[in-house]
Amino acid sequence: MNKHKINEKPHYLNPYFGGVLLGLLVVVTFYITGRGLGASGSVKSTVVTTVNAIAPQHAENNPYFSKYIPKDKSPMNNWLVYESFGILIGGLLSGVIYGRIKKFRIEHGKHTTSSKRLIFAVLGGALFGFGSQFGRGCTSGAALVGSASFSFGGVIVMLGIFGTGYAVAYFFRKLWI
C-alpha cells in the first residue's frame, strides 16, 4: 500500500539552510585537514588503479597516470577516495531518511526518452571527466572549495562551468524541458 502518491513533491532541505551547512562543512574541513573536499579525484584514482591493475607497464609509462601511482600502496588509498565513499554513504543515509530510495530509475525531461538520456549521461560524464583534469577539479573541489578559499583558479573554474552551462543550455533544452 503506497503511503505516498507517486507525484508527491519530495521533501528537501531549505536550500539556503543546506548552503549554510555546506559552507560550514567546507570551513570545518579546512580547519581539520587544511584542504577542502572534492569528488573527481576519486574517479581519477579509480581509473589509475584499473589501468595499473590491467596493464601496469602501460600505466607506469603513461606520463599522467604514473604520477598517481604511489610506490608502496594502492592508488585508491587516498583521502579523496575515502571521502567519496563517505559521499555515497551520506547520500544513502539522506535517501533513507527522506524516503527517496526506490527501485532503479532513469530521470529525464518530458520530451526525451530514457535511452537518449542515458546516452547523454555517458557523453556528458565523459566530457566532464575529461575537462575536470584540465580544470584540476570539479564543481566541488575546484569551483566550490577553490572559490571559498579565494583561489583565483577556483573562481575561474566556477565562472567557466556555469557560464558555459548557460551558454549551451539552449542546445540541450530538449533533454530537460
Binding site: I87, G95, K102, A121, V122, L123, G125, F128
Partner: peptide, 29 residues
C-alpha cells in the same frame, strides 16, 4: 577545462559529487 565541464554538466545533468549521491538512491542516469 571549465568550458568542457560546463558542456558536460548540461549534457549529463550531474557533476561527480552529486552523481555519487544519486547513485546511492538508485538513479541509473
Amino acid at each position: 577545462g571549465s568550458v568542457i565541464m560546463g558542456i558536460g554538466f548540461v549534457m549529463g545533468g550531474f557533476c561527480p559529487g552529486t552523481s555519487f549521491t544519486a547513485i546511492a538512491i538508485g538513479k541509473m542516469d
